[in-house]
Simulated scan of single mutants.
Amino acid sequence: MPALPLNNANLPYPDPIHPIIVHFVIAMVFFSFFCDLVGYFTRNHRLFEVSFWNMFVASVCIFLAVIFGQFEAGLANPYEAAKPVLDLHTITGWSLSAIVVAVTAWRFVIRNRDPLKVPPVYLGVATFLICLVSFQTILGSRLVWVYGLHVEPVVEAMKRGGL
């Protein structure tokens, strides 16, 4: 079976799909946290429902983000300087997928027990999750903006053996 032809970004399709999906997940996790926080302080329990469904969809989508991330990382042919950041980004991504699902499951239990309240300890864990997502975002940004993975000039330099 012949290999798929790769474009100037070293991908078999026009643009990286991983960032599209992952930005969706980031937005949903952050918005979920925002809704829980505002709902907690304003006692607006309707925001808790919005928060739960955002986390639920984020739990599904994070696996798509990780799968496309793994696929696109494999096509990136990272050079030595980028490998430690890519490895940490990969480990953190897989860890986040498990953590997001666990937090969502916990949120489901909270929702079933009392849909009108969110315990402060949950908000603490959600704050930790936001910090972890922020860290992962920084790593992903470094891979593109510092190391240039799937950026055409860097891909061309790697093909010519310049990196």
Rank of each mutant, 00 (worst) to 15 (best):
A76F: 04
N112Y: 05
L123H: 01
V85R: 05
I99Q: 00
M1E: 12
L47Y: 04
D15A: 11
L6Q: 13
W145P: 08
V25M: 15
V22K: 10
P119N: 13
F52A: 00
T127P: 07
I62Q: 11
A126H: 04
I26V: 11
G148M: 12
H23C: 04
N7I: 08
F108K: 02
N7A: 09
V85E: 13
L4S: 05
P153Q: 15
E80H: 07
Y122E: 04
G39F: 06
T137H: 03
N7R: 03
I130T: 10
V154D: 12
P119G: 15
S95T: 15
G74R: 08
V60Q: 05
K117W: 04
T92D: 09
K117S: 11
L149N: 11
I138S: 13
W94Y: 10
V125Y: 03
Y147L: 14
A73C: 11
G162N: 11
L47S: 06
L88I: 14
V100T: 03
M1Q: 08
V103C: 00
A76V: 10
E72S: 09
V60P: 03
R43Q: 11
S97R: 04
K83V: 15
G148S: 09
E72K: 01
V154Y: 06
V154E: 14
V22C: 11
H45D: 12
F33A: 03
L75T: 02
D15P: 00
L75Y: 10
V100H: 01
N54D: 09
P115Y: 03
V22G: 10
L132H: 03
D114G: 00
L123K: 01
A102Y: 01
G140L: 06
F71C: 04
I17W: 01
I20T: 15
E152H: 09
L143K: 03
M55D: 10
L143R: 00
A82W: 07
V66R: 03
V121I: 15
P12A: 15
N54M: 14
L37M: 10
I62K: 05
A27M: 13
L96N: 12
R111F: 00
G148T: 14
F56P: 03
A105V: 11
R142C: 07
F33D: 01
R160H: 13
E80R: 13
T137W: 01
A81H: 08
A73L: 13
